[in-house]
Amino acid sequence: MTGRGGLRPALLVALLGAVLLALCLLSLAVGAAGIPPDQVVRALFGHAPSPLVENVVWSARMPRTALGLAAGAALGLSGALMQALTRNPLADPGILGVSAGASFALVLAIGVFGLGSFYGYVWFAFAGALAASVLVYLLGRLGRSGLTPVKLALGGIAVTSLLTSLTSAVALTDPEALDRFRFFSAGTMADQDAGAVLRVLPFLCVGAVLALACAPALNSLALGDDVAASHGRRLGLVRLQGVAAVTLLTGAAVAVIGPVVFIGLVVPHIARVLAQSAGIGPDQRWLLPLSAVLAPSLLLAADIVGRVVARPTEVQAGVVVAFIGGPFFIAMVRRRNLAEV
Rank of each mutant, 00 (worst) to 15 (best):
V260C: 07
V260G: 07
V260D: 05
V261Q: 07
V261D: 04
F262H: 00
F262Q: 01
I263M: 10
L265F: 11
P268V: 11
I270A: 15
I270Y: 09
A271C: 14
A275L: 10
Q276P: 00
Q276K: 15
G279D: 09
G279P: 10
G279K: 00
G279R: 02
I280G: 00
G281H: 06
Q284N: 11
Q284H: 14
Q284I: 05
W286D: 02
L287I: 09
L287M: 03
P289I: 02
P289S: 09
L290D: 07
S291I: 03
S291C: 02
S291W: 01
A292K: 02
A295P: 01
A295C: 05
P296F: 05
S297M: 08
L298M: 02
L298A: 06
L299N: 02
L299R: 03
A301T: 03
D303C: 00
V305Y: 02
G306C: 08
V308D: 03
V308C: 03
V309M: 11
E314L: 12
V315P: 03
Q316A: 15
Q316Y: 10
A317K: 08
A317H: 06
V320H: 06
I324T: 10
I324F: 11
G325P: 09
G325R: 12
G325V: 11
G326Y: 13
G326C: 15
G326D: 14
I330A: 14
M332L: 15
V333S: 12
V333N: 13
R334F: 11
R334S: 14
R335C: 13
